[in-house]
């Protein structure tokens, strides 16, 4: 069930926003007040939505061409001068093409670069596997010192952008192409390292972040209608992760289901296992992309085919609750 306290921060109504749009709008808005912010893009500004910033502040926007590695180097150089560079491209390129520069030139010297990558996960849809980032969280999480955040809706995205500007150091923000329903209203407070429990129950814990969060909300509602109450944790701060909340919930339910639009190796599921296996061993079932590349299709077709759509989540929760009793 949803507590009265949580209800206060939930968006009422039916509005869909893509997190990339929320990012572009927030960046253009904050650019007015924070003149240290600069933005870089690799010929994708109309897709990552940094074009909104570029239109308002052309002198603070650098189109680096289709050269992601160099964009990260240039962002590092700008950061050494006290600028706050927002470097944007698709998640596949930010994490894989530019991995060396992100690690050696941004993370190792601890430079204040904000990598805001869009088009992550199978939710990209029709463009197919080469454009669906399913390893980005694993890669970024493994690089020392990078904060990894996967906001779950447009409102949270805006809050995350504000938070990463306040935070000094490298951050990776995982954004999406497709629109999804707003979850939070403006009273929601995002803090790096903190998750938020959207539903409360004791049968199981669902941990999710990013585009899958709204699907997990639908699943939790249906489970509740079937008399199965679960904890649903929105863990947008994947690194640092909210260990306390995970442990507390695992102690209560004894069963964790992680749901992510990412390879189950190295992402939110792995991060959850790392915490619980060391601090409170409990059964963790990882839902997401099961070590396969993506494909073309609509996002709902893909989520169903890869087994983490709403009905798969409900089924997995129910089956594992039965296993738990046995």
């Amino acid at each position: 069930m949803i507590s009265q306290e949580v209800k206060k921060i939930l968006f009422e109504g039916d509005k869909k926003v893509a997190t990339r749009n929320a990012y572009g709008e927030k960046l253009a808005e904050i650019g007015e007040v924070n003149k240290d912010i600069v933005a870089l893009d690799c010929d994708l500004s109309k897709s990552t939505m940094t074009a909104l910033f570029a239109r308002k502040f052309p002198e603070r926007f650098f189109n680096m061409g289709i050269a992601e590695s160099n964009m990260m180097s240039v962002a590092a150089g700008l950061a050494t001068m006290g600028k706050i560079p927002f470097a944007s491209t698709f998640g596949v390129f930010a994490s894989k093409r530019a991995c060396d520069q992100v690690s050696a030139s941004i993370a190792y010297p601890g430079l204040n670069v904000k990598i805001c990558a869009t088009h992550t996960g199978l939710a990209v849809g029709e463009d197919g596997a080469t454009h669906q980032a399913i390893e980005d969280v694993a890669i970024m999480r493994a690089i020392p010192g990078i904060v990894v955040i996967s906001p779950s809706d447009g409102t949270e995205t805006g809050k995350v952008i504000e938070a990463v500007i306040q935070y000094k150091g490298p951050c990776y923000v995982r954004l999406g192409r497709s629109a999804s329903p707003l979850i939070f209203n403006d009273d929601y407070v995002f803090r790096i390292g903190k998750g938020v429990r959207l539903f409360e129950g004791n049968k199981a814990t669902i941990v999710t972040a990013g585009f899958t969060t709204h699907i997990c909300i639908l699943a939790a509602k249906k489970l509740e209608a079937d008399g199965i109450e679960v904890d649903l944790i929105n863990m947008s701060s994947i690194k640092p992760i909210d260990e306390e909340l995970l442990i507390e919930s695992a102690k209560k339910t004894g069963l964790i289901i992680t749901v992510e639009d990412h390879n189950i190796i190295g992402g939110l599921g792995s991060a959850t296992c790392e915490v619980l296996s060391e601090k409170h061993p409990a059964r963790v079932v990882r839902m997401g992309v099961k070590d396969k590349f993506g494909a073309s299709g609509t996002l709902s077709e893909l989520y169903e085919a890869y087994g983490f759509d709403e009905s798969s989540i409900i089924k997995t929760v129910k089956e594992n609750i039965l296993n738990k009793i046995v």
């Binding site: 600069v38 002198e59 603070r60 650098f62 590695s69 160099n70 990260m72 180097s73 240039v74 962002a75 590092a76 150089g77 700008l78 950061a79 050494t80 001068m81 006290g82 600028k83 560079p85 060396d100 520069q101 050696a104 030139s105 190792y108 010297p109 601890g110």
Partner: peptide, 30 residues
């Protein structure tokens, strides 16, 4: 750069220095 006074940029992975210099030069112009 975090360990040695006087070092303006961490390097070691070849090819990356010029791009960092581009960032520094852009900041100077700004």
């Amino acid at each position: 750069m975090k360990k040695t006074p006087g070092i303006d940029m961490t390097t070691g992975s070849l090819g990356n220095g010029l791009g960092v210099g581009v960032g520094m030069a852009l900041a100077a112009k700004l």
